[in-house]
């Protein structure tokens, strides 16, 4: 969520109940502008909040030139003092999905993770159950990387690739129309594309080289894991993912305003296949 829209969060992400509290709105709006100034960011965004048991984490990011490849993440316990979030480590990315405990809110905490012999995601065959250690800061970094990769969303056309390859916010983006907004493929994953560029281009008729370099949302399985919700009034569209409860994407139709906020416990819900109805 762009830092300038934080103050209207009640009307946008408020549809799903969780917002940024009044006090935090004040704090974040100012502290993030300071952060932007210190780092010479072109834009600074509030990413979300990880609810911990004792304390919560606030996460923000900004970019200098490239709106996709150049994101730099910061985190904070109080919203005022920001620290640079480390890059996700290989170990962290491996262990984070296996860690089922709540975040505590202490970045220096070392978590013990028990890995069973039959754990398939670990990549190697273990002879005996093993305990591995993970620092909560690394867990946070990996989690944010995973969530951003899987569930950060932009409306189609909001970011364009310039001919020199740099990805920037599209200043002439006028927003999705109501009919377009009902379709999942009008939204793109705000991540480094995983499919070949021509795959993403050729799956639609009205392709555009500048905007369709990103992966559309409809490649996600199973179908129905993204919920598109246009409340009555047709002024806003909201998206949420069943995999990441707490993540909300909003877009005011026919305007350039859009954003993603995650306020949740940082646990992926992998029970989606059970939750969806078998007959749709």
């Amino acid at each position: 969520m762009n830092v300038n829209y934080i103050s209207d969060c009640l009307q946008s992400i408020g549809h799903y109940g969780k917002i940024i509290s009044v006090e935090q709105q004040l704090i974040l709006q100012n502290s993030l502008l300071v952060l932007q100034n210190e780092n010479h960011f072109r834009n600074v965004y509030f990413w979300g909040q990880i609810l911990g048991e004792v304390k919560d984490y606030y996460v923000a990011y900004g970019y200098v030139t490239d709106a996709l490849y150049g994101k730099i993440y910061y985190y904070s316990n109080d919203g005022m003092n920001w620290g640079l979030l480390p890059k996700p480590t290989k170990n962290g990315l491996l262990l984070t999905p296996l860690c089922t405990t709540r975040f505590q809110g202490d970045a220096a905490l070392i978590i013990d993770i028990l890995i069973g012999v039959d754990e398939p995601n670990i990549g190697e065959k273990l002879k005996a159950p093993q305990i591995r250690k993970l620092k909560e800061e690394d867990r946070l970094a990996s989690l944010i990387h995973i969530i951003s990769n899987e569930a950060a969303v932009i409306p189609r056309g909001a970011k364009i690739r310039r001919p020199d390859g740099v990805i920037v916010d599209n200043l002439s983006f006028e927003g999705l129309a109501c009919l377009e907004a009902r379709e999942v493929y009008s939204y793109l994953h705000d991540r480094i594309p995983t499919q070949k560029f021509n795959t993403n281009l050729l799956t639609r008729d009205d392709y555009n080289y500048a905007t369709d370099f990103m992966d559309p949302l409809d490649i996600d399985k199973p179908e129905g894991n993204w919920i598109v919700d246009i409340p009555i009034g047709d002024s806003i569209v909201l998206l949420r993912s069943l995999f990441w409860p707490g993540l909300v994407f909003y877009h005011f139709l026919n305007t350039h305003k859009h954003g993603v906020v995650y306020i949740g416990y940082g646990k992926k819900c992998i029970d989606v296949p059970f939750m969806l109805s078998p007959f749709t």
């Binding site: 009640l10 009307q11 408020g14 549809h15 109940g17 969780k18 917002i19 509290s21 009044v22």
Partner: peptide, 12 residues
């Protein structure tokens, strides 16, 4: 609720 970081849109 807004103080506590909760809330539904005002018109709702």
């Amino acid at each position: 609720l807004e103080q506590a970081g909760l809330g539904l849109p005002r018109h709702e």
